[in-house]
Write a protein that binds this DNA or RNA. Structure first.
Lengths: 201, 201
DNA sequence: GCTATTGTTGGACTCAGTTCATTATTACGC
DNA sequence: GCGTAATAATGAACTGAGTCCAACAATAGC
């Protein structure tokens, strides 16, 4: 069988587990649903769950994880010598354009059902970290000549924060939401052009 | 209530637990230390631990938590009408100045000992979230007239990301570290003046 | 068909974190 | 001092996530 980039098996069990989990989350909420429930409904053994997901909360962030994967892919293809920030912005927008209303993360749409707010926050932040890491990995070699570690990390964190805010507001805007691209553009440009410039004077 | 060896009463076990935990983390690492170990060494019942801390990982972030508390306090005292971003920057620098080399979070100094990298990341990100929330709480009422939710959240997240990067690099710089204020100033200014301005052309 | 690879499984385990009713300690009014 | 109300400490029993591992099943390639 084939494996994806994270090294996890890819077969039909994954989709079955996702479907079972979604049903149960809607029926009884996230907190009340145990991994055992999910695997029982999916008709597989409990251990199998951990072949496909690292934790229960992974199920809430499938789309965000996919988005981050795509950003990493696209960043790999950016040629050297291109203006760094502009290229990064472009990649973030291109990937955002791939996410329509059918790809809103469960974490946001089922927010009320989750119950354990802390766990949702913590698991969401794991995505923030991965996003920040991916951006730092892109920036570091391209800025190392001129900038120190602090600048690279601060820039990566700030951009990751902006993109996270974009996803969150987009998801929360419900049926009235505009395309994700617009949210990401606004948030990222705020950081790129500067808070001082945009908000004050 | 417990008494120490001299027989003097102690109003709370919190300090004892912190000390016991620090010892054990250094002796055997974070992952290998259970809450039961900590409470045993502290001479206290296991349940008592949860009277003082929400989770084991809280012990890694005591100083960061204190810093966020201080920022929240200071932000409360900022008068209305003051330039928002400038005031915020000032508060972040003032609080950073309170943290000397004796207040480096265990999360960073004992990083190698922690073992469970994922848990350290996740617990650290909980602090990021609280920091972002505190900044958003400050910005929201002051920008609501002119700015939407996205701008407020993106700005808060970006600044929180920058400050987190500052703490991290400061902590990692080891014995050669300069004052935390300098790191925070650089990181925050990067976001305030804009990545485009600072990093490109 | 044979075999190496990859996927699935259950069982036993550790430990964080929760709940709750009970008991110790302290603070305080008198 | 004495009694009492508030607060802190405690143990016991529980839930459930996540890990480890050895056995077993399915499959692809040959």
């Amino acid at each position: 069988m084939r494996h994806d980039s994270v090294g996890r098996p890819r077969s039909s069990s994954r989709g079955i587990l996702e479907d079972a989990a979604l049903e149960l989350f809607i029926e009884q909420g996230y907190a009340a649903t145990t991994i055992e429930h999910i695997t029982q409904r999916a008709g597989v053994g409990r251990t199998t769950f951990f072949n496909y997901f690292e934790s229960k909360s992974d199920l809430l962030w499938l789309e965000v994880d996919a988005g981050i994967d795509r950003v990493i892919e696209e960043l790999k293809m950016v040629p050297q010598g291109v203006p760094v920030i502009a290229a990064l912005r472009e990649v973030l927008l291109v990937v955002a354009a791939e996410f329509g209303v059918d790809r809103v993360p469960l974490a946001f749409t089922q927010g009320e059902l989750i119950g354990s707010e802390a766990e949702a926050t913590a698991s969401g932040l794991t995505r923030f970290a991965r996003r920040a890491d991916s951006l730092a990995g892109f920036l570091a070699p391209r800025l190392a000549d001129t900038q120190g570690e602090l600048v690279v990390l601060a820039a990566a964190n700030a951009l990751a924060g902006a993109v996270s805010a974009a996803w969150e507001v987009w998801a929360r805007d419900g049926i009235a939401r505009r395309p994700l691209t617009e949210y990401v553009a606004d948030a990222v440009d705020l950081v790129i052009t500067g808070l001082g410039h945009s908000l004050e004077q």
